[in-house]
């Protein structure tokens, strides 16, 4: 919740062009002898610098540690670690592709479903809903974002999975069994449950940020569109155009959340390292294999392989976040124009 709000604010400010690339800490206090600089400011600046470098240091140390500890596995398997499909602690053969696949497949599917839903809800909230309804729905959406993932996991195990097994999956299998998405026996616990849980988890993030970004588009824009003879829907399109960067950012944040989600997914995905496009089949993700096997991993190679997976997960998340920032920054910069 806190974090979402922080990020929201950040996106806003970027969108509004408030955050400049390097905001100099302006000092309005009385200048004194130190070359026109204030002692307090100098001390303050250096303390901040120190904290900032600590952050950087932590990240660097983490990466070094991860690389260091995954060395045995990197040496043993090389690139095959990413390419192969076997994960067999008994034979001491490890490779990460099923997990990478599971992570990407579940996250992307979840995003594919969540994005249109979130956009629909946020358009409704910002453009169509009466104020009171908007307040209520927004509150519910924010509440959804605050639910701990273990709660979603439990809900998945005890409510969602049985329902999928007995009702939804058989029905889908009967009707659409010819699609690769819906083949195999209905387990309940599997990719389907994981995707649905992920949808519920990322929906509020994307919705609330997109809604805020759309609401931040000034009334003058709407009026400009109306006065040109735009219909309600055309006004929405123009607003979407203006909110594009924020929505892209929100989407990538949602994707980041889905990729990193551990607890709830572990509880419902079935934890079977295999590659299947069928939603009914169980799968595995990078985060869930780490959570599952860390406590029981005894051999050096097993531990090291798990750490290498965490390194890969770290890299994927960093890339996603960097991409989010670059896109948001790129879109805003393109249209920021002259001051």
């Amino acid at each position: 919740m806190q974090i979402i709000n922080l990020i929201k604010r950040k996106i806003f400010k970027q969108q509004a062009g408030i955050i400049s690339v390097e905001a100099p800490a302006a000092s309005f206090s009385i200048k004194n002898l130190l070359g026109g600089k204030n002692v307090g400011d100098l001390v303050f600046q250096n303390v901040l610098r120190f904290f900032a470098s600590i952050l950087l240091l932590i990240v660097v140390l983490m990466v070094i540690q991860m690389v260091n500890q995954s060395m045995p596995s990197i040496k043993q398997f090389g690139w095959n670690f990413i390419k192969n499909n076997t994960w067999d602690p008994v034979k001491e053969e490890y490779s990460a592709w099923p997990f990478i696949f599971g992570t990407l497949y579940s996250s992307l599917l979840a995003l594919l479903i969540a994005l249109p839903l979130s956009l629909g809800v946020s358009i409704f909230l910002s453009e169509f809903a009466p104020r009171w309804l908007e307040k209520i729905v927004s509150l519910l959406v924010e509440l959804l974002a605050a639910v701990p993932s273990i709660v979603y996991g439990l809900f998945g195990i005890f409510v969602l999975a049985p329902w999928l097994r007995t009702t939804i999956e058989p029905a889908l299998g009967n009707k659409f069994g010819f699609l690769p998405l819906f083949t195999g026996p209905p387990y309940g616990l599997g990719m389907f449950a994981a995707v649905i849980i992920l949808v519920v988890m990322i929906l509020p993030i994307i919705t609330s940020i997109s809604r805020d970004v759309m609401k931040a588009i000034p009334v003058t824009q709407r009026e400009a569109a109306y006065a040109l003879g735009a219909t309600k829907w055309e006004v929405v399109k123009i607003i979407l155009g203006g909110a594009k960067s924020g929505i892209v950012g929100a989407t990538l944040l949602g994707l980041g959340r889905a990729v990193g989600e551990t607890m709830a997914v572990t509880m419902v995905i079935g934890n079977t390292p295999q590659i299947s496009y069928s939603l009914f089949e169980p799968g595995h993700t990078m985060a869930s294999v780490i959570a599952n096997e860390f406590s029981e991993a005894t051999s050096t190679l097993h531990v090291s392989s798990l750490i290498e997976i965490s390194l890969l997960l770290f890299i994927i998340t960093v890339i996603l976040n960097a991409a989010a920032r670059l896109i948001v920054w790129g879109v805003t910069k393109k249209y920021k124009g002259r001051k």
């Binding site: 000034p218 003058t220 824009q221 009026e223 400009a224 569109a225 109306y226 006065a227 040109l228 003879g229 735009a230 219909t231 123009i238 155009g241 203006g242 594009k244 249209y335 124009g337």
Partner: peptide, 19 residues
């Protein structure tokens, strides 16, 4: 919608579409 295409309006603050 039809009416507003016949009757255009200019606002106090210039409001070009920023994107």
């Amino acid at each position: 919608v039809w009416l507003r295409r016949k009757i255009g309006m200019i606002f106090q603050k210039p409001n070009p579409f920023p994107t």
